[in-house]
Amino acid sequence: MSDDESYELLGLDNVLLPVGDLGEAVAFYGRAGLEVAFRLDEAGIVLLKVGKEAPGLLLRLEEELGRRQPVWASPRVWLEVRDARAAGRALEAAGIRLLDAPSPVATGWTVEFADPWGNVIGFTDYSKRPELARG
Rank of each mutant, 00 (worst) to 15 (best):
G33W: 03
A94N: 14
G33P: 01
A27C: 08
F113H: 06
F123S: 10
G51P: 07
V36F: 05
A114M: 10
R97I: 04
E35F: 02
L12G: 13
G33V: 02
G108Y: 07
E63L: 15
P75G: 14
S6D: 01
V77G: 03
Q69Y: 05
T107R: 09
M1S: 13
K49A: 15
E112G: 10
S74I: 06
T124W: 03
V81I: 11
L132V: 00
R134N: 10
R68M: 10
A27I: 06
D13A: 15
A87Q: 04
E53V: 05
L40H: 12
R76D: 01
G44A: 12
A87C: 06
D3V: 09
A93Q: 10
L12H: 13
P130S: 14
S2F: 03
A32H: 02
A114F: 04
L91Q: 05
E64V: 03
K49W: 07
E112H: 13
E24F: 07
R39T: 00
I121W: 08
A133C: 09
P70W: 08
V71A: 15
R89I: 00
S103A: 15
D83W: 02
L99V: 15
Y126D: 06
W78H: 11
S127P: 08
G51A: 13
R31G: 04
L34R: 07
W109C: 12
P104V: 10
L79N: 05
D3P: 05
L58V: 08
R129P: 02
L91W: 08
W109N: 09
A93G: 10
A27G: 12
V71D: 02
S127V: 01
T124K: 05
F113Y: 07
K128L: 12
G56H: 04
E63N: 13
G20H: 01
L16W: 00
S127A: 15
D41K: 06
D100H: 15
G135M: 00
L34C: 03
V50K: 00
A54H: 08
R82G: 14
G88A: 15
W117P: 06
Y29D: 01
A106M: 11
F123H: 09
L34I: 06
P18M: 04
A25D: 04
L91K: 06
L91Y: 03
T107W: 01
L91I: 01
A43H: 14
V19R: 08
F28Q: 02
P102W: 03
V71H: 05
D4A: 08
T107K: 00
R68E: 11
G51Y: 06
F123Q: 06
F28A: 00
A93E: 15
D125L: 07
A32R: 02
A32N: 03
D13R: 14
L16H: 09
D21H: 04
P55D: 11
L22I: 04
